[in-house]
Amino acid sequence: MAAMNELAQVVKTPPKEPSAMTRRELIGRLTKLGASALATAIGGGAVMEALSPAPAVAAPRTGTAEPATTRKFYYGMVIDTKRCVGCKACVVACKAENKTPPGVAYTVVLDGALGNNPNDKPLFMTKPCFHCENPPCVDVCPVGATFKRSQDGIVVVDYDRCIGCRYCITGCPYGARSFDFGENYPAVADHTPYAAVPSPEYGQYQVRREDASPIGNVRKCTFCIHLQDADGRYDRQAGRWPACAKTCTGHAIHFGDFADVNSEVSRLLRERQAIRLKEELGTNPNVYYLL
């Protein structure tokens, strides 16, 4: 209980206290002074950034300087594999929340990541979208239908823009995207009352219809952005918290704002040794794993 109260305090704390200057802010100030601007231009893929529709933003934990941005939050997750029991409640909670059809899963639980030999302690890994700082899926979209939100870095799909080419699925190194083939669970296919329940996704509250988006679109985890308030904040106490993290039976999924040094996720990164998947690809994921 004490932990929960502490957590509530953390969540309520405004993200930017005058005393707490993150490295990102420090670098931001340096950039304003022009100290690192030249270095960034030479070393940091300035050409691609210039071509990019939205200003590219650096991750809080890397040393890359960033251009001016409207970014208020750096939402992400820290997933403690030692606490994960592989119950898949997160998968079910996500499906119940977002009403995703068969074949579409915004998060899955892997149990073979480290081979799981008979003598190993089993390792389960829940795997939502990592909402990368440098998302390859966004770059390859031919119509800009999938993009990284400038205010909080959440990678979303515009269902009305997406043409369903699935290039983003090939571009994602983490298997975080699925194509909606138009399949339905029996309750929806048989037009039971459940079929009339809208999906709150993107705050659109759409009832699933044949031949209409999101059928024929690529779909993915949104960190449940429909639960944000008008300022873009989540509230764990009020239940406005990503469904997987809210449900996790072993408290393995920690969600929060990396820009807030007092957040639970920031603290976990400071105190524990975290890894990210496929660092070598430079995608800069916002989901960390504790081993």
Partner: peptide, 26 residues
């Protein structure tokens, strides 16, 4: 035939993302 939304093919002309090789190709 492969597109999820065949009748949105024109989106590539109207909303191109030139960071995508697919947009260039089209």
């Amino acid at each position: 035939a492969d597109l999820g939304h065949m009748f949105r093919a024109w989106h590539v002309m109207v909303y191109p993302n030139f960071k995508s090789p697919m947009a260039w190709m089209i």
